[in-house]
Design a protein around this nucleic acid. Sequence first.
DNA 1: TATTATATACAAACAGGAATGTATGTAAAG
DNA 2: CTTTACATACATTCCTGTTTGTATATAATA
Lengths: 207, 207
Amino acid sequence: MVRKTKEDAELTRQKIVDAARTVFLARGVSKSTLEHIASQADVTRGAVYWHFKNKTEIFHAIREQVFLPLIDRMDDTLAITADNSQNPLDQIEASMCHTIQELNDNVEMREIYEIMMIKCEYVDEFALVLHQIMNNCSSLVEKIEVAYAHAQSQNLLASTLTPRALALDTHLFFGGLLHMWVKDADGSKFRYQALELIKSHIKLRRK
Amino acid sequence: MVRKTKEDAELTRQKIVDAARTVFLARGVSKSTLEHIASQADVTRGAVYWHFKNKTEIFHAIREQVFLPLIDRMDDTLAITADNSQNPLDQIEASMCHTIQELNDNVEMREIYEIMMIKCEYVDEFALVLHQIMNNCSSLVEKIEVAYAHAQSQNLLASTLTPRALALDTHLFFGGLLHMWVKDADGSKFRYQALELIKSHIKLRRK
DNA sequence: TATTATATACAAACAGGAATGTATGTAAAG
DNA sequence: CTTTACATACATTCCTGTTTGTATATAATA
């Protein structure tokens, strides 16, 4: 029973990607073999090699599942930031809280973040993934900076720091929070109070 | 020319550890083979297997090079914190700046941090390394909290947040900074302004 | 519409290197 | 003379990439 329809084929492809996510999470990217992935997906390596050139391609397929939607959300955030009707500090706070909520609710996203952060070695071809991430960071910082600039012009800020300094501080805080959130798998140290931490962080800036 | 003296043997051991650091950094821990490490150290796998049970043991040996001194420094920091003569906010700031300076000056430390953060997959036996790290984090937060409590009682704080909230925020900030510092290999985004970022972070709290 | 041809979506078998751990050899230190 | 500190050789397992086989969907053609 080979040669399925196009829809069937797309379904097997997705099965392979899902299986790879499970296997990567459990064994790490490097130690995961295509046989592990294939058997987890209930297919043979033949199917895997049909849909993907190698393990790296599967990795990127997984990554796109999170980061293509994420770029969309970034654009949303940009649109929101341009909206002057809302308190910019509330917007920054809501944006960060929203990401944490996503991680809480969306199993796949949570797993992918965990793979990217602590189940993957950024060498060779993966090294340039890091560059992409760093560039995303830069544009993200700029957006936060714009929001803080709005807050400043609306006289909402308690501090005399520049919007840029505030934005960088917030970005580093949130990066740290994401890392700790992911690493705190049992939730005893950071996950349970993540939202409070965000609110405290923003409260520190409110006049 | 085999069978060196004990001092020679200890020297080869150190050569292997240094070689492993280089190889891990270049190829990632998983894809590094004992042959890679051996030839980098100008010995054979026989020497490696004589000194270490397997790759994992070498990994831990590398880790100890950084984290045993680090624990010592933590105790120093604790001692300093108990000293009431100095401004606690200055102490926190100096402590973070000192770590960044270490990373700037100490090549080995920099490389080891990079290996631990982005050249290593935390699976199986490595998973419990993460637990150790998280526990270190907890005690570190507590120390920062004590310092903020001192600052509060000396009326040095601008905010009404609890010392605990401030400490967590600082810890997450610094965790994020370390990650970005390591990932920003060319220094164009974060490294060059790391010390300023720390000062801004603390300035935000000063009355 | 029925038939034929071709491309698709895999499964299964094959060939190769590569890495690990172990076992054995060996020369010098103690 | 024994143990140490390795080097060398060996056995085995594992993983990868490719090749071949094949049943069927789908397009082409008559």
